[in-house]
Design a protein around this nucleic acid. Structure first.
Length: 428
RNA sequence: GUGGGCGUAGCUCAGUUGGUUAGAGCGCCAGGUUGUGGUCCUGGAGGUCGCGGGUUCGACCCCCGUCGCUCACCCCA
């Protein structure tokens, strides 16, 4: 033992163990199921990338790129960053490997941002998401948004809303930003303390400000949604109509400006009404038609969606949804072995080979103690292997869920065990 | 980066105006005779009172610092 203080998980990170990890497993498995049904395949890319992937990807000026990245140098003096989000790495991989399009990938990944943690916000959090590269068909926008919508519905969430907006493409947005800049320049002194000085750097950010003074100004400001070019307008209308056709309710939110610079045209966000406080976005995404080029690839359109696992779990709790995620994985059998040695180990090996989930006690505990553990394990059956059973080539089988704590049990020959188990454990 | 609240056993928390060996519930372990789970009963293990300094005859308690947790701003998932 050393006399230095014990190690702890770094600030803003956390361990997921026991019943918590069972919920994570369920959540990720559910999302994977959705992704597969929508034709996505899993993409696994490095947790760290050349820092330029993110700086050029999400924008040098973005909050995240400027001060929230975990940047480090390796021994070869290369500068890397831990991924702060999931899209840029997949786009980098897309450019590098040039796969056939449309390229549809899903991911489950940690994401790192150096910020002060609070409810629903961590330095390492985890995201589930999808990306589609190589098509600007508005129907893919509908597909991505609906995947998210259906996923949230399937989890049992009810108190959430879908907000949607269009950022236009590069040209019509530039024209609009000029218009907005002109408007803001006339009202700069009415903005909140922060934006009174910074509005010029990123005028769009002011639209997203919750300060009442900024809101008062932007209430009358020109909105991008009203200044889209014909193509962008048409794209947006088709997306909205497509959602309506699926019975998905999306409210247009002209102020919706997402944090990364790469967005164009469709942007959307799912906000929970069950979460208190400001961290109420449980998922979001949008189209990023210029990103591939930005990272050095051929002009290729793309769209993606990401959702924070920690926030989803918070939301599930807030809505009181326990569902399938509360339960521990079921154990079929608990082996109570009082003889020790190899006999129990061999039996376990055979049971597991047959596909049963089986656990046991260790350290030569008493039978009573092992029975207690069997009970707590939640297993359906206990198999008892003692000196008597061993000598007779038998095993005692006991139903742990009969509700009767007496001695209802039977001795079966080991040669008949699997046939009996197949019958016994099949009936739920 | 800024501000508020909080750090006592694995967990949730008590701890009287500063006063002997710091407590409870839950959890854990072991027993309640011959090889058997729940409930019940008995016993046990487990704490540098976050850490460092100061005040005091004496500090879990008061003061300062520090670290951590937490909530909010900002930004986002």
């Amino acid at each position: 033992m050393s006399d230095s203080p014990p190690f702890k998980a770094p600030i803003g990170t956390h361990d997921v163990l026991g019943v918590d990890s069972a919920r994570w497993e369920g959540l990720v498995a559910t999302f994977a199921g959705f992704a597969h049904r929508y034709g996505f395949h899993l993409a696994i890319t490095p947790l760290f990338e050349d820092v330029g992937v993110f700086k050029r990807g999400i924008g040098e000026q973005s909050e995240v790129a400027r001060k929230e990245m975990y940047v480090f140098e390796d021994r070869g003096n290369r500068t890397f960053a831990l991924r702060p989000e999931g899209t840029a790495p997949i786009v980098r991989a897309f450019i590098q490997h040039n796969p056939t399009t449309p390229f549809k990938a899903w991911y489950f990944t940690p994401a790192f941002r150096y910020e002060r943690p609070q409810a629903g916000r961590y330095r390492q959090h985890h995201q589930l998401g999808v990306e589609v590269l190589g098509t600007d068909d508005p129907m893919i926008d509908v597909e991505v948004v609906s995947l998210a919508q259906r996923f949230f519905e399937d989890l049992g969430l009810r108190r959430f809303r879908l907000l949607i907006n269009s950022m236009g493409h590069a040209q019509c947005r530039a024209a609009y930003v000029a218009l907005l800049r002109e408007y803001l320049s006339q009202h700069a002194d009415e903005l909140c303390d922060e934006h009174a000085t910074t509005w010029s750097e990123n005028p769009l950010r002011v639209l997203d400000c919750k300060n009442e003074r900024c809101v008062a100004v932007t209430d009358k400001a020109p909105m991008l949604i009203d200044h889209l070019c014909d193509d962008c307008r048409a794209h947006f209308d088709v997306v909205r109509a497509g959602l309506v056709a699926l019975g998905i309710d999306a409210s247009v939110e002209p102020r919706l400006v997402r944090g990364f610079d790469y967005y164009s045209r469709t942007t959307f966000e799912f906000v929970s009404d069950a979460l208190e406080g400001a961290q109420n976005a449980i998922g979001g995404g949008g189209r990023y038609d210029g990103l591939v080029e930005q990272l050095g690839g051929k002009p290729t359109s793309g769209i993606g969606f990401g959702s924070g696992v920690e926030r989803l779990l918070l939301t599930l709790d807030a809505e009181g949804v326990t569902g399938a995620f509360g339960a521990q994985r079921e154990l079929d059998i608990f082996l109570v072995d009082t003889v020790g040695g190899e006999a129990g180990s061999v039996l376990l090996d055979r049971l597991r080979h047959e596909g049963y989930s089986v656990d046991r006690a260790y350290d030569q505990r008493s039978m009573k103690s092992q029975m207690k553990l069997a009970d707590k394990s939640g297993a359906r059956l206990a198999l008892l292997l003692g000196a008597q059973e061993l000598a007779a080539q038998e095993v005692t089988m006991k139903d742990l869920r009969s509700g009767d704590f007496g001695t209802t049990q039977e001795r079966v020959a080991q040669v008949d065990l699997f046939a009996i188990l197949a019958q016994r454990l099949k009936v739920t």
